[in-house]
Nucleic acid binder design. Structure first.
Lengths: 206, 206
DNA sequence: TTATTTCTTGATCAAATGGTCAAGAGCCGT
DNA sequence: ACGGCTCTTGACCATTTGATCAAGAAATAA
């Protein structure tokens, strides 16, 4: 009775499929109720599997959580990676902010899962934050600094500017309950994009 | 054996004191682990009371949570309330943003508690969001709109501008784990204030 | 088909946890 | 000092929940 998770073993067709189903269900559940607030039964029910069956694919609850969390981190970095120092600054930043906003509206669960993790001290992603994320931010801060020194945009603290972009764009996913309640309706993504781009970028124009 | 929570009854000295101790302990615990992730034992231990004793003051775990949550909402609104249409726009907004940032740095627990509540759909504060908060935002959006129409600041979507201020300022409390990890150190509140004020306000100057 | 491996699940467990209760200790006005 | 009210707690309970296991079903290879 070898565990399926075992080292380097080829995943069978049924393995692949069920793991995907579980990760999708787990994202829904974890993002809605948090790690501690979610139960294995909930995830199993949503995935259409029995609890012992689910635990056949992932030995422990935490293993599911880590898997679904890591699965989202890649997606998270992608848009920032392509920020190009050769491109036009405002165009590049417009693209980045727009993409982040689109992700927030299209996949708020992933954003909330991540937010919840950070909110509670990022116990499972310290390495990711201090490693790849930090390196990427340093790299892109340099890009922004180059733009400033070339006189292409106004002076701004690059790191905190990146934080501001994250803060504002993810706000619409993480705090959508508040946004909707205060506005009295779901906001139009188009309108949000226009407003946010103006707020964040107008000050940069020279 | 009348319950202390009972209607309109005068709270004794010891009641007052113990309830305060409990609320303080509960804020720490709930903000760190979320509602579901916190246990009554944890709160009792931190408050220096036995569990049954704690449940003598608050009948149910949820009652503690609601109490500490409501306790923070007032604090939350205060700075926005005083935004004054008669004052200088940039000065008024500078004061508001600065105060929000100071709160984020001085009392991140309250911010995290609130963030966690909203993140999970705001089940306990729907009324607050749709009532007092919405009304206040509408009122202050009007203030901003007046400033725009008077030509005192550049055009901006008032509601989304307020959201952006919230997003950025609270980011430093809610996501402090990420900020610290990416920067490699705790950020200096002064430096953050300068950076954030420039990012959010420079685009408004006419 | 048959043998072997992979999947699936009902039954069950131990620990954690929210909450109760009855009895005792402490405080306070008289 | 005393009587009544407030406060405190050890013991206990029911439920939830993460996790296990042995045995059976389904797939897969021979």
């Amino acid at each position: 009775m070898p565990r399926p998770v075992a080292k380097a073993q080829q995943k069978s067709r049924i393995q692949h499929q069920n793991r995907a189903v579980i990760l999708s269900a787990a994202l829904d559940v974890f993002s809605a109720y948090g790690y501690r607030g979610s139960t294995v039964d909930q995830i199993a029910a949503k995935a259409g599997l029995s609890k012992p069956n689910l635990l056949y694919y992932f030995r422990r609850k935490e293993e599911i959580y880590v898997a679904v969390l890591e699965h989202t981190l890649d997606e998270w970095l992608k848009p920032l990676r392509v920020l190009d120092v050769e491109g036009d600054p405002v165009a590049e930043l417009t693209r980045y902010i727009s993409e982040k906003l689109e992700i927030s509206f299209a996949n708020p669960q992933a954003s909330r899962l991540f937010a919840n993790e950070i909110l509670h001290g990022a116990p499972h992603v310290q390495k990711f934050l201090k490693g790849p994320l930090r390196a990427l931010v340093e790299e892109k801060a340099l890009v922004i600094r180059r733009w400033i020194m070339a006189g292409k945009i106004a002076t701004v603290d690059p790191q905190h500017f990146i934080f501001s972009i994250w803060a504002v764009t993810q706000h619409y996913a993480d705090f959508s309950a508040q946004v909707a309640a205060v506005l009295g309706e779901e906001p139009s993504p188009e309108r949000v994009k226009q407003a946010v781009l103006e707020i964040l970028l107008r000050g940069l124009k020279v």
